[in-house]
Each structure stands twice: as C-alpha cells, then as structure tokens.
Design a protein around this nucleic acid. Structure first.
Length: 250
DNA sequence: CTGGGGAGGGGGCCC
DNA sequence: AGGGCCCCCTCCCCA
C-alpha cells in the first residue's frame, strides 16, 4: 500500500484535529528514537494552527530520530563514503568510486526537526533570529524549531520544511521543495523514469532504484561489524543487530 | 524474521 | 544568493 494512500485520508476539507496527534505515540516515539524519546516526549509542543491549512502530512508529524539506535562512532566516516557503487546511477553522479564499498554499521547523524513548533508569525515574517555570532555557534536559528544554521540560505531552506510551499494540484499534499513535489506527482502519473539495468524494473525515485540495485549486489552496502554479514539497507542491518547477532555491541 | 518496494525528508553541492 | 539536483537516509508496509 503506497503511503500516498495513507496520506490521502488527511485531505478532508477541514483541518484534521491536529491536537489528536499527540495521542499517537508513533508520532513521537519510534524504536529509532530512543535517544530522543524523553526529550521529545516532554518537549513536544504542537502549535499546529500555524501550519498551512491544507493538512499535515503524517511524515511531518514525526519527530524522528536524530541518531541511530546505537551509539555509533564517527557518523561522518560513513556518510562521506556512502555514494553510489558505480553501477547504479544512471544520472549524474560525480561522486568518486568508493574505495571501500561496504559500510560497517554507522548511520549519519541526521538533524530532523523535533517538531517543537510554536508561535509562528505569518510566513513572510518568519525570518531568522539572528543570534550574536560567535566563532563556535551558528548564527541563524529557526523560529519554528530549535535547529540552528550557519547561513541564511540553509535556514531558509529549512524553513520551507515548515511552510511547505509546494502543493500537489491533484491531491493537495504539500511539500517543502519542488522536486519533492515532482517525485510525488509521479505517484499519480505512474511515471517511472529510473530503471534497473539488471532486471529492467522501473522506479519513480532514484533513491529507490539505488536501494533496489543493492539487492543485485553480492556484497551489500551495510555490514554487520560482528558477523560480517552484509545487508542492502541500514534498516535490515539494524533489525539484524537488534535481533541478537550484535547484542554485545551498542 | 528477513528482504524489498514506495514514499518522503533534509543537507550539501553545483550552476 | 538562490534554486535545482543529488545523495543518503528513514519510515511504513507487504510478501
């Protein structure tokens, strides 16, 4: 079942009762959010009246993890090396071939918005708060959430994730960026411009093709540090780890 | 439980 | 400086 199907239930004429969202722990806590669980659970303040009146996509209500489930060392050591393996990208890929295609476990730290949103001014006024710039601290703070940026451009880009200016004319779903909307529109049109060179299966999204290509690889991208088994996805490796193989890690 | 597809988000880089 | 594109990642769901 495509997620778009799930999303469409939000397309009621009226705004959903967003305050209900707090009731659903899935929006606050997931197995991957253990590190933030208490923090998010305690701080979540959904001032949703400030959101676009369309609706709030479920994904936007998920203040998910900023870290993986495990305490992993040096997240950047992998993220910088997680480019395509060479065979998989039919589009522009300027990344140099990775000298070590198999990862050991260690996701990049992501800085997802925690969903703490409050007291937002009208969209055009939602300017950055400039803080006294110091050598060690970002200068721009998001007014909608605790995130900080070192450049105005980065902040403005981030703010789009709150304002969601790109709206699908077919279903009304809103997105932060035009290319996200274009990708979404493919779910309506059925267009699948990315095809697998091995099995000719087509995908609407390049990332999904990339993930699919891992299934053809003998040595997959994510490797268990304990048993050296490789997996095509981080989630599979995480499941593998949590199911016992790597119980001594963490 | 595992593997995989669909959908989507965010940061960084390039133009 | 800003927009577009790419990559990586996550989550959900299903077989």
């Amino acid at each position: 079942m495509p997620r778009s199907f799930l999303v469409k239930k939000y397309f009621a004429k009226q705004k959903p009762n967003y305050s209900e969202l707090e009731k659903f722990s899935k929006y606050v806590v997931s197995p991957q959010t253990s590190l933030l669980r208490d923090q998010v659970g305690a701080r979540l303040v959904w001032d949703l009246s400030v959101l676009p009146t369309l609706y709030l996509p479920a994904s936007q209500t998920e203040p998910s993890a900023t870290t993986g489930p495990l305490d992993l060392s040096s997240p950047s050591s992998l993220s910088s090396n997680a480019s395509s393996s060479g065979e998989e990208d039919e589009g522009r890929t300027s990344d140099p071939p990775s000298p070590e295609p198999v990862h050991t476990y260690g996701p990049r730290q992501r800085m997802k918005c925690t969903g703490v949103m409050a007291h937002i001014s009208p969209p055009e006024e939602e300017e950055e708060r400039e803080t006294p710039a110091t050598a060690s601290r970002p200068a721009f703070l998001c007014k909608h959430c605790p995130k900080e940026y070192t450049s105005l451009g980065a902040l403005k880009m981030h703010i789009r994730s709150h304002t969601l200016p790109c709206v699908c004319t077919t279903c009304g779903k809103a997105f932060s960026r035009p290319w996200l909307l274009r990708g979404h529109i493919r779910t309506h049109t059925g267009e699948r411009p990315f095809s697998c060179p091995h099995c000719n299966r087509a995908f609407a999204d390049r990332s999904n093709l990339r993930a699919h290509l891992q299934t053809h690889a003998e040595v997959k991208k994510y490797q268990c540090g304990v048993c050296s088994r490789t997996f095509s996805r981080m989630s599979l490796l995480q499941k593998h780890s949590s199911s016992g193989c790597c119980s001594t890690s963490v």
